[in-house]
Design a protein around this nucleic acid. Sequence first.
DNA 1: TTGTACGCGTTATCAA
DNA 2: TTGATAACGCGTACAA
Lengths: 337, 337
Amino acid sequence: MRRPTMADVAREVGVTAKTVSRVLNDDGPVAADTRERVLAAMRRLGYQPNLMARNMRVGARDAAIGLVIPEMGNPFFGTVAGGIEHAVRARGLTLIVGSSSETAELEQSLIATFLARRVSALMVVPSAASDHRHLRAERAAGLPIVFLDRPAVGMAADHVVSGNREGAREGVAHLVGRGHRRIGFVGDLPATLYTRRERFQGYRDALEAAGLPFDRALVESGHDQEAASAAVRRLLALPDPPTALFAANNFASMGAVVALARAGRRDVALVGFDDLPLAEVLDPPLTVVAQDPAAIGAAAAELVLSRLDGHRTKAARRMHIPTRLVPRGSGEIPPPP
Amino acid sequence: MRRPTMADVAREVGVTAKTVSRVLNDDGPVAADTRERVLAAMRRLGYQPNLMARNMRVGARDAAIGLVIPEMGNPFFGTVAGGIEHAVRARGLTLIVGSSSETAELEQSLIATFLARRVSALMVVPSAASDHRHLRAERAAGLPIVFLDRPAVGMAADHVVSGNREGAREGVAHLVGRGHRRIGFVGDLPATLYTRRERFQGYRDALEAAGLPFDRALVESGHDQEAASAAVRRLLALPDPPTALFAANNFASMGAVVALARAGRRDVALVGFDDLPLAEVLDPPLTVVAQDPAAIGAAAAELVLSRLDGHRTKAARRMHIPTRLVPRGSGEIPPPP
DNA sequence: TTGTACGCGTTATCAA
DNA sequence: TTGATAACGCGTACAA
C-alpha cells in the first residue's frame, strides 16, 4: 500500500518522472496530450506530491515559519499567530507553532527543533529569562528572525513590539486629566520583564509631565490574577490610598476589576493596559489602552517576508505598533472632592 | 556560507557520514574515541542535523501533526491546540497549525497542504459546510485522523467532542429547578451546525423531562454577538416573554449579557454554554456550563498517539468530554412570583 | 517536446 | 568497529 510517487505516475503514462514534474509545476513545455494523460494518471493513482522531498531538493529550506509563543490559549498570542498565518499563507508558507510556557528551556528546545527542520524563518516571543546570543550565527547566515512583543536579549535583531511606554503614558495621563493625583500602578512579575519596565516608565513619564510626585508605595505587583487582586487590596488599604489605578496588563486588569467589585468600590478609577473581551459589559465598563495583536503579527510577517525577498539589511529593524486609548467609563471616574 | 552536513563533519574527522550518523542516533557500535572526535567536530562546525532529510529518508513521514482550527484568536481553540501540543511534544512531534476561518475551502486547502507534507497525523475541527469523504482513503491507508469539537461529515472517524447534549440538558434543568417554566434558547447559525443541534436537543430533553411545553417562539438565533443581543431583545419583547435564557455558546452568552445589562433587566435568569474569562465579575456573575478545551485536546492527542503506536482498529472511536455546571448567580435568579 | 544524469542530506544494507 | 553503495522523492542542467 505504498503511496504513489512521480515515478509511479510516470510509469503509468509511459514517460519520465521529469515530465510529470513539468506538468505539476507548469515548468517547461509539455505536449497538451501528454499533459492530459499525466493528469489523468495522477487522479487515477491518487497521487499527491511530496512537499518534504520538494522542499529538500529546491531550497534545502522548509516552506514553513517557526513561531514560538508563551501560551496558545492566551487570546493575545493566538491573535498574533493568526495575523502571521494570514499574512504568510499567500506565499505558500505554513506555520509551525510551539508554546514555551514562558520558560527559557522550552523556548530553546523549540527553536532547536525549528532550526533542525530548516524553517524558512523564525519568529519568537522571548520568555522572561532567555538569552538569544546563540542565534546570532543563524541571523548572520541569513535566516530571517523576528522577535515579537519583546526584544531579543543579547543580540541585535528585528522586532515588533507595542508602543508600551507611550501607551502607558497616555493611559495614566488620561487619569491625571480627570484630576487624579494619587495613581496606583499594578504590574506583573518579575519587574525586570521588558513590557513591565516599559509600561512602568510610561507611568512615571506621565506623572513627571504633570508635575506629580512619584510614590513608591503606590507601586504593587503580582504574577497572576489572584496576586493582582491582593495587590489592589493592599493599595486600597494604604493610609493615603490612590484614587485611581493603572493595571499594566490584562490579568492585572482582571484582578483589579475583581478586587474593586468585591470591595464594592465604584469610586476608584481604573485604566487597564490590553483590551479584554467583555470590557464593555463590566460595571463600570473598563477603560483600556488597547493593543493590536493582529497588527503585530502582520507587521512581523511583513518584516520576515521582505527579508525572504532578499532585503538583507544587516541593521535590525524595529517597529512599534501604536496602542489606542478606549474610554468606556472606569477611567473617567473623577477623584472624590 | 553553506550549512555543514554530515559529510562535512565526517571529512573533518576522517570517517564516513554513516559513522557520524551512528554517533548521532546512538545506532550501532562506535569506538569511544571516534565518538568523541565526531562530537567535537560537530561542535566545532556548529553542525545541526537536518530533520527534513531524516524524515524523508526514514519514514517518508514528517514528524509533525497537522491541526486545522477555525480561528487561532479564539481562546477555546487556542486552549485545545495547547492541550494537543503539550501531549505530543514528549513524542518528539511538532504541531503545524492552520486556521480555516470556518470556511470549507480553506479547510480543504490546509488539509491538502498537510497531506502533501506527509504529516504523521491529522486533527481537524470541521467547518460548517465541509465534507470529508475524500479523507476516507487516507484513513484506510493508516493515517491517524481525529476530528475535534464536531464530528466528520461523510465518513466514520475518530472524534472528540464535548458532552453538548447532556451539558445543555443540565444547564436548562438547572433553570427548571429554580422554578422557571418559560426558558428562551439563543443559538448560533446556521441551525444545522452540529453543536447547535446537540445543544438544542439537550434543551428540549430538559423541557420534556420536566413536562414543560416546547414553544417555538422562545427559540432565537444569531450568528455573532450583536445578532445574539438582538435575538434576546426580541425574546424579551414577546407578549409572554421568557423568565430565563439559555445561551448556547459563548458569543450568544456575551450578547445576552450585553442585552440584559443595557435593558437593565436583573430579573431574567441566564445560563451560558461555554465559560468566559470574566464570568465571575459580571453583574450578576454568569452561571455557565463549562467545557474543558484542554481535556479535549489531550484526549484527541491520546487517540492519535495510540493509533501511531499501532493500535489500528478499523472502528471509529468516539469520546465525549463531560461539561461542568458552574453556578455563579445569573442562573439562580428565580422567576417572578 | 522529452529524457539522462546527478544531487539535496540522511539512513539501510551488507560487506569488510 | 567502520565503509561503500544505494535509496527516499523530487528538481536542475543539459543533452537529444
